[in-house]
């Protein structure tokens, strides 16, 4: 089969796949993927299609690459799931200013998103552990206490957003488990956080 024929075939498949779920309005990204994966359409061969796009230059209105489905495995293992919800932004950590344990606008927005997911059909199946972390510029013992306050501030805020407090546990790691090993502002800002971990 020549590349041209193959490309045409794939484009047809894509159109079918796109049109099938397009009439449904989806509320959440997770549901989109579930819908797509149940259509049982063969996954498009992306490498071939990319070659075609550069060589043959098909009608761009017809291809609509932004509307293409992607297949993605929803992780079921708890570690993979944690990585996945953070990558997707469904669950987001709250970051803090130096030696502070109050939630600014960004931190509240992060926890708003997290609460939404934790209350969703997927998220409500999990409990959450909130880890309090600090940057290395303080002292270890005081930072353990500061991390406890950060974790609890995040917990309380999630609870006000309707996440059942009995689902939320806290632990402080102080400066013992930095996310970034560097010794500059960038690393420090990454290490001052309430880190949300899904637990069963």
């Amino acid at each position: 089969m020549t590349k041209k024929w193959k490309a045409l075939f794939i484009n047809l498949v894509i159109v079918l796949v796109v049109l099938a779920p397009a009439c449904k309005t989806t509320k959440k990204p997770v549901k989109t993927q579930e819908t797509v994966t149940t259509t049982e359409a063969p996954p498009p061969d992306l490498s071939v299609r990319t070659d075609t796009a550069t060589e043959v230059k098909p009608n761009e209105d017809f291809v609509k690459p932004e509307a293409e489905p992607t297949e993605e495995v929803i992780p079921t293992g708890i570690e993979d799931l944690n990585r996945w919800v953070h990558e997707k932004g469904y669950v987001r950590d709250a970051f803090f200013n130096y030696d502070e344990a109050t939630l600014d606008g960004d931190a509240q927005a992060a926890l708003n998103a997290s609460a939404t997911w934790l209350k969703s059909a997927q998220g409500s199946g999990y409990n959450v552990l909130v880890e309090g972390h600090c940057d290395e510029r303080g002292t270890e013992q005081y930072n353990l206490a500061l991390g406890d306050r950060r974790a609890n501030v995040a917990k309380d805020y999630l609870a006000t957003l309707g996440v059942d407090a009995s689902r939320i546990r806290t632990v402080s790691y102080g400066e013992e488990r930095p996310f970034e090993e560097g010794h500059d502002d960038s690393a420090w800002s990454q290490n001052r956080r309430a880190h949300l971990v899904l637990v069963r």
């Binding site: 344990a101 013992q141 353990l144 206490a145 406890d148 306050r149 609890n152 309380d156 806290t170 402080s172």
Partner: peptide, 9 residues
């Protein structure tokens, strides 16, 4: 020791 209840060490 340092104990904490509801984020108040």
């Amino acid at each position: 020791f340092v104990g904490s209840e509801r984020g108040n060490p």
